[in-house]
Design a protein around this nucleic acid. Structure first.
Length: 760
DNA sequence: TGAATACCTATTTTT
DNA sequence: TAGGTATTCA
């Protein structure tokens, strides 16, 4: 029976992952909601008698715990003190699930007598695990050492810990003391293998995705490939190389641990298994949970199917139901939201539509302000308005970190971040900021760091790099470059020959050649100007090495300029280019002025999960962004987009404002607000002056005069000066960008935010 | 070798 | 809709 259900879960998870089109077999319409079965059981209010008995037991074991339990509501108490061996807690948003989880740990430990060392408590992030441990420590009357929490952490952490200390990975060929490859090291290893073994890999930019699909048995074909490439060989080489280096990647930690446990060679002394955010577990993580649980292991999982937003990564929105059936779990509900105002919760329910089915989300707070819905011309103008709003809030005593701006994509946030910073609003660092997320800047810094000791191979790689080294390559033809590199004594000579061919005629687009020449000059100058001070640096580097027509040009430009600034600072202390670049690479990206750890938070809807703020702006909720236009192809995806908006709205304690743009910057977005905003009950929201604007939206193609006259700093025909290009004339200016004609030097575009122009 | 054509994908991310 | 990649054609 169990085996059969387990197979079902696995198959289902896989099939949903494999083909997001079409619902999995045997399942009801996902939009109907998580599980009517679960809902029916959970509707009954907790019986007071067992609660009283439970509190008495707690009192006998630990008066401190009993006091703390009494501060919970009846639903929370019932879940935390359940006598059932397997418990599922369906926690509505903001209903105190972390408190319940912490109290459950204490209940099991102090009342049932389970040693902390024999509990595995699994969270989704290390941050969440840390918070939980702190909470548990706060409920303990006697201090315990860190060893007690050896199995508190993420599933990856647990897998690693088990493989290192409890299980025997030598069965699989790995030795004790194995290392772990992070995402970046993994990519570098692939690249090295491809190079060393002369592998032909197509769609190399989608390599991770292709390898994952291959591992899932979905074949090696991709895109419009007619013939196989060396992907299968790469996968095998990668496996062998990991063995040789005695390292595992993140996926291996989960998979190997589950595999070894399933073989049953070692049995864990695991008395209790507690899981947070169950709805987000991926198939291989579910496998590990299954392998972890022994017959005697008490199981306790908390989650909210309404907040399942990772199905695209493989998590199964039906996991609650499947677990419930497989392990005959007792189900508890936490219906009371202690976070948000009734208006916010009503709006959140509204956007969930039919998916909210059970209607058990109950508000406990006093009435607040309605949800505001406002439109702006675009992200830039919204940013300016938000800056004033945030400053006013801050003057009224709202701390910066109590304000958050949420958007569907990171690209939307970048615009807002730039404007807010330009307006001196402190913004918190982007979560997980790393150079890996800034490929253009990373590439530049790497080249500079390497140039201290020019190495022909490094330079060759730089110049022929498919994504970033395109300039020189295109100016002369990449094949010609490769040939030149092979025939000339060194890369410098090869470059020179290409940029200035013997006949004296420049090859390729003159603009490309001009930039290539600048590059050449820069590269040649670098070793000599190693001691350049920071002051001259920014003007010494060409800002145009990126392709202006590239989709990510503005983003890359910002990143590169930010990296220049950091490099300039580093040069002041370390002196030489290459050491400064290496230092900057090591310290990670620091955004320019205005960025602090305690500023306004700008987050994607996904990244905002699990957080809460006093004031929340949901920015750019245009039709086509929320939901993303592509989600319409698949009802499962569409349901997930609804949950995503639900998550966004419910981050707010006091106030939410939803905004949309009459001139959205991204092509997928339409010039109208998301349809789903209409699901918000009229009593709970306030549509700015949108009614008017909406009616006008058809006439938007030619924006009204007052929209174009919005305090733009430059106007058509205005003479301007630029430090490098000299005198020019403004061709065009919108709220984002100004285009200037510099005559012989051609036309340049500048972002208004970083605009180095002066009026002539 | 280079140009033209065909096809696919776009977004979200922890460890 | 556009931009990137593979493939085909000249």
């Amino acid at each position: 029976m169990l085996r059969e259900l387990r197979r079902q879960v696995r198959e289902q998870a896989r099939s949903e992952h494999a083909s997001p089109l079409g619902p999995a077999p045997q399942l009801a319409d996902p939009a109907v909601g998580p599980s009517l079965l679960l809902a029916a059981q959970a509707l009954q209010a907790p019986d007071p008698l067992p609660l009283r008995l439970a509190l008495e037991r707690a009192q006998a074991a630990s008066p401190f715990l009993a006091t703390s339990l009494q501060r919970l509501d009846a639903w929370q108490q019932a879940a935390a003190t359940s006598e059932a061996a397997a418990v599922l807690v369906r926690a509505q948003v903001g209903s105190g699930k972390t408190a319940v989880l912490a109290h459950r740990v204490l209940w099991l430990h102090q009342v049932i007598g389970v040693p902390l060392e024999q509990m595995a408590v699994v969270t989704f992030t290390n941050h969440a695990a840390g918070q939980l441990v702190e909470r548990v420590k706060g409920l303990l009357t006697t201090p315990v050492g860190p060893a007690a929490f050896r199995w508190f952490g993420t599933l990856h952490g647990l897998g690693r810990s088990l493989l290192a200390h409890t299980l025997d990975p030598s069965v699989l060929g790995w030795r004790p003391g194995f290392g772990v490859l992070d995402q970046h090291a993994r990519v570098e290893l692939w690249q090295r293998l491809i190079k060393d073994h002369h592998l032909q890999i197509k769609y190399a930019n989608r390599l991770a995705d292709r390898l994952r699909k291959l591992a899932a048995g979905q074949g090696a074909q991709s895109g419009n490939m007619a013939k196989d490439d060396h992907l299968v060989r790469l996968a095998e080489l990668y496996r062998l190389e990991k063995l040789r280096l005695n390292t595992m990647d993140f996926d291996d930690l989960i998979e190997f641990a589950a595999d070894l446990l399933a073989r049953g060679q070692q049995t864990l002394p695991l008395e209790a298994l507690l899981v947070d955010e169950l709805q987000d577990c991926e198939p291989r993580e579910v496998e590990l949970l299954w392998a972890l649980r022994q017959p005697q292991t008490r199981f306790f999982a908390v989650g909210d199917p309404n907040q399942s937003i990772y199905a695209w990564r493989g998590s199964n929105p039906k996991l609650f139901e499947l677990m419930h059936r497989a392990w005959q779990c007792q189900v508890y509900d936490l219906p009371n939201n202690y976070r948000s105002t009734p208006e916010i919760l009503s709006a959140a329910r509204g956007v969930l539509g039919r998916g909210a089915g059970e209607g058990q989300l109950a508000a406990t707070r006093a009435t607040g302000a309605p949800v505001g819905i406002r439109q702006f011309h675009d992200g830039h103008l919204e940013g300016l308005a938000l800056a004033e709003r945030f400053k006013a809030l801050n003057r009224q005593g709202v701390a910066w970190p109590q304000i958050a701006v949420l958007a569907r994509t990171r690209k939307q946030l970048e615009v807002l971040r730039a404007v807010l910073q330009a307006q001196q609003v402190p913004c918190a660092d982007a979560a997980q900021a790393s150079w890996e997320e800034r490929p253009a800047a990373l590439w530049l810094l790497r080249q500079l760091a390497q140039l201290g000791s020019p190495d022909a191979e490094v330079l060759r790689a730089a110049l022929t790099d498919a994504q970033r080294g395109w300039l020189v390559g295109r100016a002369a033809g990449r094949a010609a470059l490769t040939k030149a590199l092979a025939t000339e004594p060194g890369p410098w000579q090869a470059l020179q020959r290409l940029v200035r061919p013997a006949k004296g005629k420049l090859a390729g687009d003159p603009r490309d050649v001009a930039v290539a020449e600048r590059w050449l000059g820069l590269l040649q100058a670098l070793p000599e100007t190693g001691a350049t001070d920071g002051a001259g640096l920014e003007s010494a580097l060409p800002p145009l090495w990126l392709r202006p027509t590239h989709r990510d040009y503005q983003r890359d430009l910002r990143h590169v300029q930010s990296a220049y600034g950091q490099l300039a600072t580093a040069c002041l202390t370390t002196g030489a280019w290459h050491t400064a670049a290496a230092a900057v690479l090591g310290e990670g990206p620091r955004d320019p002025a205005g960025t602090t750890a305690s500023g306004v938070r700008l987050l994607t809807l996904h990244a905002a999960k699990g957080l809460e703020f006093q004031h929340v702006i949901l920015s750019g909720c245009n039709q086509g962004m929320v939901p993303l236009a592509s989600a319409y192809a698949d009802p499962l995806q569409l349901a997930e987009e609804r949950r995503l908006l639900f998550v966004g709205l419910t981050r707010a304690r006091d106030q939410v404002e939803v905004t949309w743009h009459t001139r959205p910057a991204l092509p997928q977005a339409q010039a109208q607000p998301s349809d789903w905003l209409l699901g918000i009950p009229a009593a709970d929201c306030h549509w700015g002056d949108a009614a008017v604007a909406w009616a006008q939206s058809a006439a938007e193609a030619a924006p009204p005069a007052d929209a174009t006259a919005l305090d733009l700093p430059w106007h058509e025909g205005q003479p301007v000066k630029h430090a490098k290009y000299g005198a020019g004339t403004v061709l065009r200016c919108d709220s984002a960008e100004v285009q200037v004609d510099f005559g012989r030097l051609g036309t340049k575009a500048f972002s208004l935010l970083l605009c180095p122009l002066q009026a002539a």
